[in-house]
Design a protein around this nucleic acid. Structure first.
Lengths: 144, 144
DNA sequence: TTTATATGGTGGCATGTGCCACTATATTCA
DNA sequence: TGAATATAGTGGCACATGCCACCATATAAA
């Protein structure tokens, strides 16, 4: 019998940590951590981004993205080239190796959402998704 | 203009990280981190718990709670005594210092939820809360 | 009762994340 | 143009968290 998660703050913590544990174990076979998987996902989704765009889209600290991208370059998932128009920034592009794992990573992320919502009706799941996006956008807007 | 957080997985990450940043800065005046604040909250809510109960209720790894409780004992917020019926476990009780910050900590946690849901209607906010609890409970149940 | 298994707690290690200081390059403005 | 300011990236540090190995105590099984 699971203990009741009785405050929304606590629920969010649990959802974050559990989904990352699931993604970590699901991506281990590709030698990727959850954090690395998320970066590969977004770079492939856009077919290439500047390092700064990745930072803004994931709204993580820029130093975090710098470290993750460095690692993914070393392991051959991403390629970094200096941006022609702004020498301060990098263009990040996926390699073949990244494209190869992309569908599986995407599926793992989707699967983790299905897991946490498996007892919801389709209508509840859609509403949950909508409210999550709404709250996340509101949280980002507060920092502007 | 904030970037769209376009997947529920990413939304949950953002909500978790932002709410912890808010709680960290809100609790800094009491020399408490967000993680410590959450432990104080649950110990005061129940007026005392065993260390193992805290672990299960927050569903964090037991070593994490051990470290946090050790720190909070050192800083005078909690008292640890060996449980009479089971010498392996500890009874954790709040001190006066913990009770003194408890209302403010509770308010900070509530405030963080209000922030992320400030543009929702009351009905949406209640529904969001309900779905968060539902998903968190489902996530915990999967590990049984 | 003795032995095997389960459970609560601790310490060590790795990773993720945030913050800060700093460097290099761009942009703005006087 | 030249100086002030803003922005992209890096490295260091601190803390949070998860996992694992291990120890001590309880509980179950023989």
């Amino acid at each position: 019998m699971p203990y009741m998660a009785d405050s929304p703050f606590k629920s969010i913590s649990i959802l974050y940590r559990k989904s990352h544990i699931w993604l970590n174990s699901g991506c281990a076979q590709y030698h990727l951590s959850a954090a690395q998987a998320v970066v590969i996902l977004i770079v492939c989704d856009f077919g290439g981004l500047t390092q700064d765009e990745i930072t803004k889209r994931l709204s993580l600290d820029k130093s975090v993205i710098a470290k993750t991208v460095t690692k993914l370059e070393e392991t051959g998932f991403l390629i970094r080239t200096t941006n022609a128009k702004d020498k301060r920034t990098y263009d990040i592009r996926p390699t073949e190796k990244a494209w190869a794992v992309y569908p599986a990573v995407k599926e793992q992320v989707d699967e983790s959402f299905r897991r946490m919502t498996h007892q919801m009706t389709d209508a509840e799941r859609e509403e949950f998704k909508r409210l999550l996006l709404l709250a996340a956008d509101a949280s980002l807007a507060l920092d502007e």
